[in-house]
């Protein structure tokens, strides 16, 4: 068996794949955060809770209603997206005139409440969610075994990221969105229904988080804490990538997942802090993030 720096290739590849899987979740979540921040000026601390809700909607769908994985992949984003719209209409829209801090505090409180409710109902131990039959097993690629589900998570995440990028950069709706992000009042004065777009943006961000949650359900355990475990790293990803850059969010998310995965092979002690070390270094040299523009 060949080694690279004294590490067997299959082990290296295995961690690389795990890193890419985690990176896929980081990418989708930080993308949603970036889109929401651009449009609403709100740092959405509830994003991890929405991710967790996505996983739980899938779990509850399966266990209470017999709804399978594939339908959940479609339904959970819709359910959580509608929940997001209710949050936006009912709570967030009163905060747009205020400082960022209020949005952060409100969504942080929401995250605690949502997480608390799920902990009350389900406890903190994770619930298993089986990998769907079609995605079970592993492929022998010659140099490594690739569990099919991991490959699927990466592919589906990239597809979701590409879809989001395409919608924002290449469609008329996306052009309205970019215009409204840049100058909301004037854009509305041109006849574009900006409040509606803001509402849909938050709903879409929530749906994206829920989509990641369903993808994560079989890969991680479905637990009320799964959101808060991931959200801090995701915020670091957003800071490193730079707020408001779509491509930045995707590339940084995947890249940091890989760095985290590789650090588990070469120096496991640093694997849980490596992202924050990179964040500190990036902030020192590029305060606006790798892909952000200085204001």
């Amino acid at each position: 068996m060949t080694d690279i720096f004294g590490v067997p290739v299959p082990a290296l590849m295995g961690q690389l794949m795990l890193g890419l899987v985690n990176g896929s979740f980081y990418a989708i979540l930080s993308l949603g955060l970036a889109v929401i921040f651009g449009m609403l000026n709100i740092i959405n601390f509830a994003h991890g809770a929405l991710f967790m809700m996505g996983a739980f909607v899938a779990w509850m769908g399966l266990n209470y209603l017999g709804i399978g994985y594939w339908w959940s992949l479609l339904l959970a984003p819709v359910v959580v997206g509608l929940f997001g719209i209710v949050i936006e209409r009912g709570l967030l829209r009163w905060l747009y005139q205020l400082d960022h801090l209020y949005g952060l505090l409100l969504t942080f409180g929401l995250a605690l409440i949502i997480e608390g409710l799920f902990r009350y109902r389900f406890g903190v131990s994770g619930q298993p969610y089986a990998i769907p039959e079609q995605l079970g097993g592993a492929l022998n690629l010659g140099f490594m075994f690739l569990p099919v589900y991991r490959g699927w998570v990466i592919a589906a995440s990239l597809a979701a990221c590409f879809f989001t990028w395409f919608m924002i950069e290449k469609t008329r709706l996306g052009a309205y969105l970019r215009a409204a992000t840049e100058n909301p009042k004037l854009t509305q004065a041109f006849g574009i229904n900006v409040p509606l777009m803001v509402m849909l943006t938050y709903g879409f961000g929530a749906a994206l988080a829920a989509f990641a949650g369903v993808l994560a359900a079989p890969a991680l355990q479905v637990s009320p804490l799964m959101g808060s475990n991931v959200i801090i790293v995701v915020f670091a990803v957003v800071v490193i990538g730079g707020m408001g850059s779509i491509l930045g969010a995707i590339v940084t998310g995947l890249g940091l997942g890989v760095v985290e995965g590789l650090s588990k092979v070469f120096y496991p002690e640093v694997s849980s802090t490596v992202v924050f070390i990179i964040m500190a270094i990036v902030l020192l040299f590029r305060p606006a993030g790798l892909f952000g523009k200085e204001k």
């Binding site: 004037l186 006849g191 229904n193």
Partner: peptide
């Protein structure tokens, strides 16, 4: 009316 509805009455604005 909200600004986007006023615009739709046929008003163009050059700020």
């Amino acid at each position: 009316l909200a600004p986007h509805r006023i615009a739709r009455l046929g008003v163009g604005f050059c700020p």
